[in-house]
Write a protein that binds this DNA or RNA. Structure first.
Length: 228
DNA sequence: GCGACAG
DNA sequence: ATCTTGTCGC
C-alpha cells in the first residue's frame, strides 16, 4: 500500500469512504493480548520507524514486538496523520506472529473532524478493534477533568461525545481517548484505565514509543521479536 | 476572514 | 515528531 502520491482532496474521499466501515459498538470480546503502535523519525527525514508492541492483559507485561523501517513521502497534515503512518504500521502488523485482541494507536480514533483518526483508519483496514490515545486534542472541547488519577471528562465535537479527556496521573495533563473500531467510548475508557502505570502515557503506547525510538537509534533491529 | 491544528 | 538545559513539585 502507498499513500504517497495522494492529494488532500483524494485523501479526504478515502476517509469519507472508510468511515462507512467503522463499527462503534460495545466491546464483545475478551482481551488477552493488547498492543501499542507508534512511529518515530528524524526531523526532516523521509524514513519512518514503525513498531507494534504486544503486551499481556491485564498484567501489561510485554511479550513481543514488530519493527519495520519505511520511506514515506506523504507529509504530516493535521487531520491526515493516517496517510503518513498507517502504511508503515501495516508492515509491522503483517509481521506479527500473533495478532492482538485490541490495538492502541498513538493519535485519535473518532475524535476527528471526519471521524476518521488514525486508530479508526488502521482498525478498519486491519479489521482489528482499536482505540486512539492522543496527547493533544485535534478537535472538540471538554471541561477540565478532576485532578485525581482516573478522572474523566467527555470530549465533545459538534454536540457529540467522541471521546474523553482522561487523567492518567494525579495533577498531570490528561490524554485523549477515543474508540477507533469495534469499541465504544465507555469501553475504550474502561480498557485504558486498566493500562495506567507510573507514567502519563498508558503502557501500550508508552512501550511502543520507547521501542521505536530504540529502533531508530540502532539499539533494536527490524523484524519480529519475542521478549524474554 | 480568523484561529486551531493528532504526530 | 525530535532536540535539549534547567526548574518545579510530589
Amino acid at each position: 500500500m502507498n499513500y504517497d502520491t495522494l492529494t488532500i482532496t483524494e485523501a479526504t474521499k478515502i476517509q469519507n469512504q472508510l468511515r462507512e466501515e467503522i463499527r462503534i459498538r460495545e466491546r464483545n470480546f475478551p482481551i488477552d493480548i493488547i498492543a501499542g503502535a507508534d512511529i518515530s523519525f528524524n526531523k526532516f527525514s523521509t524514513t519512518v520507524y514503525a513498531g507494534i508492541v504486544l503486551l499481556r492483559f491485564p498484567s501489561l507485561l510485554p511479550v513481543a514486538y514488530s519493527l519495520v523501517k519505511k520511506e514515506v513521502l506523504f507529509p504530516y497534515v493535521p487531520g491526515y496523520l493516517a496517510f503518513r503512518e498507517v502504511p508503515a504500521l501495516l508492515g509491522a502488523w503483517e509481521q506479527l506472529a500473533v495478532k492482538p485482541d485490541l490495538l492502541v494507536v498513538d493519535g485519535h480514533g473518532i475524535a476527528h473532524p471526519r471521524r476518521m483518526g488514525i486508530a479508526a483508519h488502521f482498525g478498519v483496514l486491519a479489521q482489528v478493534p482499536a482505540i486512539g490515545c492522543a496527547k493533544k486534542v485535534l478537535c472538540g472541547g471538554y471541561e477540565e477533568p478532576g485532578l485525581q488519577q482516573g478522572s474523566e471528562s467527555p470530549l465533545i465535537y459538534k454536540d457529540e461525545v467522541v471521546g474523553v479527556a482522561l487523567r492518567t496521573k494525579n495533577a498531570v495533563k490528561p490524554v485523549y481517548v477515543s474508540p477507533g473500531h469495534k469499541m465504544d467510548v465507555p469501553g475504550a475508557v474502561e480498557v485504558m484505565k486498566q493500562c495506567l502505570g507510573r507514567y502519563r502515557i498508558p503502557e501500550p503506547t508508552r512501550l511502543a514509543h520507547n521501542t521505536v525510538n530504540l529502533f531508530r537509534t540502532g539499539e533494536l533491529s527490524e523484524g519480529y521479536h519475542e521478549v524474554g
